[in-house]
Design a protein around this nucleic acid. Structure first.
Length: 425
DNA sequence: TCTGGGGTCCTAGGACCC
DNA sequence: TCTGGGGTCCTAGGACCC
């Protein structure tokens, strides 16, 4: 038996992070809201048991949450990011290879011991993480990523598994695969599951055993890959080194609709500065910028607009990116539209080691270096202090339409002044 | 009144080339 | 009326993920 693929994730990760820093909500009903306090994006297991559905708009459940005495938090990505880093460091030490897949999920590999059983190892890892990070995790093991995801799902579902399941070493594999609905299989989304169900394929076992030419005709390599992974053939390898980002997107909804060019400009400026700082952090340059905005998708006169510009010389310079972005903003703006969201996407990214400097224009070289220094100074100051300590004048925006975060928890792990005090008597 | 944000991968089809 | 064949590259958009 070759290497085992291990899938590890934090249980109800956002909720667990909040409960970890605030013991008063431990073991209680808790929901986490999306940006702008829009909808429910995470629940504690207690809230789930009380029947609070995922993804529902907050305003629809506000009353019910109060009646049930369920705590509410705005999402606090600085906190979750910090806990995630600690978790991943610990996992990296304990797996042979580790691919960080998302803020709360990782894939690892492990060689199986002589008796093939990784339960002891998994159980030790779970305790270690709980002791050191304070977050419960689940561990799924299989021959491929798709199977390890299924294992993880079973680990969470069946209590006696205590958060660990290994589908490769059990005898009645089909018994379990028969119980996994086809839309729960990793890679099968809404569209594909409708198509599959229309053909009588309702669970993971049936998907594995259906004729591959059928799925190939409809979904090509994407479909075949999922099917092969279900059969135990590794098609989606564990990537230890995360590949360079191909695009960077920063977008937000506004607390209230805006309808002037001035406001849109301010928002775009702010997002562009966040995105270009990210770009420089990744040591990358961009060659294309897209700006977009939309009104409420649920309204009758839904309006959305976007514009893209290609740059001849790749850059990571805030001033250049800002100038181009504001030109695009003028293009996409239309008066009397109640805009509720806007954003920027940086496209065609490349590593900055390939930066091309214009060779004939002496002045532009000097300018470039000056801008580079300015960007560096701003980035460094913002890194040491609050992320927007120093910014560009054009990006100062009115507080009242900044996204709502009314139920934000304190940053007890990343702000020195917020570290909890302990008094011993 | 109020419905998130940030990604990746793949494919079809257009533009262009010889 | 009739209008090649084969290839590459790029982009927009769909589908999916957390």
């Amino acid at each position: 038996m070759s290497k085992a693929i291990i899938q590890i994730d934090g249980n109800n990760f956002y909720a667990s992070c909040e409960q970890m820093i605030d013991p008063s909500i431990k073991g209680k009903g808790l929901v986490i809201l999306s940006n702008n306090d829009g909808c429910i994006i995470a629940r504690s297991s207690e809230a789930r048991k009380m029947g609070i559905p995922m993804g529902t708009p907050y305003f629809k459940l506000k009353k019910k949450l109060k009646q049930l005495n369920i705590a509410v938090r705005s999402s606090n990505y600085e906190l979750y990011g910090d806990i995630s880093n600690r978790l991943m460091q610990l996992l990296r030490k304990n797996c042979e290879e580790l691919e960080i897949y998302s803020i709360d999920e990782a894939f690892g590999t492990m060689k199986r011991p002589k008796d093939k059983c990784l339960y002891q190892w998994s159980s030790n890892l779970r305790s270690l993480v709980y002791q050191n990070i304070g977050i419960p995790i689940s561990i799924g093991i299989g021959e491929t990523k798709v199977l390890s995801k299924i294992s993880n799902h079973i680990a969470k579902k069946i209590e006696r598994n205590s958060g660990i399941f290994d589908i490769s070493i059990i005898e009645n594999k089909d018994y379990y695969l028969n119980q996994i609905e086809v839309d729960k299989v990793w890679g099968v989304g809404k569209k594909m599951s409708i198509w599959l169900k229309g053909r009588g394929i309702n669970n993971a076992r049936e998907l594995r055993d259906m004729p591959s030419n059928q799925i190939n005709r409809k979904y090509g390599v994407v479909g075949i890959r999922i099917q092969n992974e279900l059969k135990g053939k590794l098609c989606i390898p564990v990537k230890e080194i995360s590949s360079a980002k191909k695009e960077i997107c920063v977008s937000r909804s506004f607390a209230y609709p805006i309808d002037t060019l001035e406001e849109l400009n301010q928002a775009i400026c702010k997002y562009v500065l966040i995105a270009s700082a990210k770009l420089r952090r990744n040591n990358q340059l961009l060659s294309a910028i897209k700006i977009f905005t939309t009104t409420n998708i649920n309204s009758k006169d839904f309006y959305k607009s976007e514009a893209t510009i290609q740059l001849n010389i790749p850059t990571s310079n805030s001033k250049v990116i800002l100038e181009q972005s504001l030109k695009l903003t003028r293009k996409i703006f239309k008066p009397y539209r109640k805009l509720i969201k806007a954003g920027v996407i940086l496209h065609k990214l490349q590593g900055n080691q390939y930066k091309q400097i214009p060779i004939f224009d002496e002045r532009s070289i000097q300018e470039k270096f000056r801008h580079k220094t300015l960007d560096n100074i701003i980035d460094n100051i913002n890194k040491r202090n609050k992320s927007d300590t120093l910014s560009w004048g054009s990006s100062t925006i009115k507080k009242e339409w900044e996204p709502r975060r009314e139920k934000l928890s304190y940053l007890k792990t990343t702000k020195i002044e917020r570290i909890p005090s302990v008094f011993a008597n």
